[in-house]
Structure formats: structure tokens, C-alpha cells
Simulated assay, not measured.
Amino acid sequence: MPTSSDMTTQLDTNVLDALQHQVALFARRAEQTRLGGIGNARNSMDRAAYLLLNRLDQEGPMGVKALAAGMGIDSSTVTRQVAPLVDSGMVKRTSHPEDGRAVVLQLSPRGKARLEEVRSSRRDLMALVTEEWTPDERDVFCELLTRFNTALSAVHTAMPQASPAS
């Protein structure tokens, strides 16, 4: 089985260098704009809040452990990121329907409205950025970016986690 360095020599290093550079630029520009959209909702929701609210909207109420597992992050991180969303009324804690002792997180009507406002603003930004693209180009880019993110997530999951410093 070829090693990682064997794979690199088999592939076009110029393309790989260009790809890593473009990904780095994308990461910087995404942070600069926070891909927050345009208009009043621009830069109005951080990435963590957006991803948490979006997941709760798409998958429904769930516990912290399930939310963390689905997002590939630690439960303590989810707990920390959810706290301000609960405080602001965008997420509510409710009892689990089958086990009243367990708590589930649920998107509130306020959170749903806020999420839709941010989504709309971000849609407007994506439309502006890709306004000269054909519908097929948008589809292909979305498909490839999804594939890239999935592969990157798989690599991250397969990597051994660094142990905390003593």
C-alpha cells in the first residue's frame, strides 16, 4: 500500500500546492467575511452558533452527546457553545420525551427565525459571489466542496488525537 509521500509524488505537486494555497486563502477570506452574508444580518452569527442551530433545525431536538457526535466535536465544547444560545432564547432545553431525566436541546421559534434571517443573508452572498457562474458550475462546485469536506473530515477523524500537555 502506498504511503502518503508516495501518493504525493504520484500526483501533480503543482496542483497540490495550488490546492493547499487556495484552501488557505479560502479559510482566511471565510474568516474575514465570516461568510456572514450581506445586509443587516452580515457578520451577525458566529460559525459555531450557525452550525449548531442549523443541525438542530435539520435533525430536530437532541442531547448534547448526539449533537457533539454529529458535529465531530467534544461534548464539553457543545455545552460551552450552546450556553449563550440558550441564554439568548435561540435554543431551549426540554425533557427527553422518553426519559424525563434526560435533557434535549431544541431550536426555539426565535432561533428558527434568526437562523432563517442569517441563511437568507448568506444565500444572498453566495448568489453575489457566483452571479457569473452557470447553474451547472454552481452544482459542480457544491458537489466537489462537499466531497472535499467529507474527505477532510474522514482524515481528521482517522488521525490520532494529540494528548494534552502535562
Rank of each mutant, 00 (worst) to 15 (best):
S88K: 10
A24W: 06
T33M: 01
G89F: 04
A48L: 07
Q161V: 11
M71F: 06
A127R: 07
L105C: 15
D46A: 09
S88P: 00
P164L: 15
F141Y: 14
S5R: 08
A165D: 12
R80V: 02
A68T: 07
Q22I: 07
G111F: 06
S120D: 12
Q81S: 08
S166V: 13
L53E: 10
G89I: 04
L105W: 12
A102Q: 15
F148Y: 14
Y50S: 05
M7C: 11
M1E: 11
A165C: 03
T94D: 14
A162W: 02
T79N: 11
G100R: 13
L56K: 09
M159I: 04
S88V: 03
G70T: 07
P84I: 01
S5I: 10
Q58F: 04
N149R: 09
R147V: 05
G72H: 00
A27M: 03
E59Y: 07
T94P: 00
R122D: 10
T150H: 05
V82Y: 01
L85R: 04
L25W: 06
L144S: 11
Q161C: 03
K65M: 14
N14M: 11
G70M: 06
M62Q: 14
L11R: 12
H21G: 05
E143W: 02
S75R: 09
V104D: 14
V15R: 11
L125C: 01
P97Y: 09
T3C: 12
A41E: 07
Y50G: 08
L67G: 10
A41G: 03
R147C: 09
R114N: 08
T9I: 12
V118E: 07
L128D: 05
L19A: 15
M1V: 12
A27S: 04
I38E: 14
F26R: 02
L25G: 09
V140S: 02
A27K: 03
T13G: 11
D17I: 06
A69P: 02
E31F: 03
R110N: 14
L11H: 12
P2M: 11
E117Y: 00
T94W: 03
D124Q: 13
L145E: 04
S121Y: 01
T77C: 02
S121W: 02
T146C: 13
H21E: 04
V103T: 15
P160I: 13
N149W: 06
D17H: 07
V82C: 02
G63E: 12
Q10C: 07
R119Q: 14
S121E: 01
V23E: 03
E117S: 10
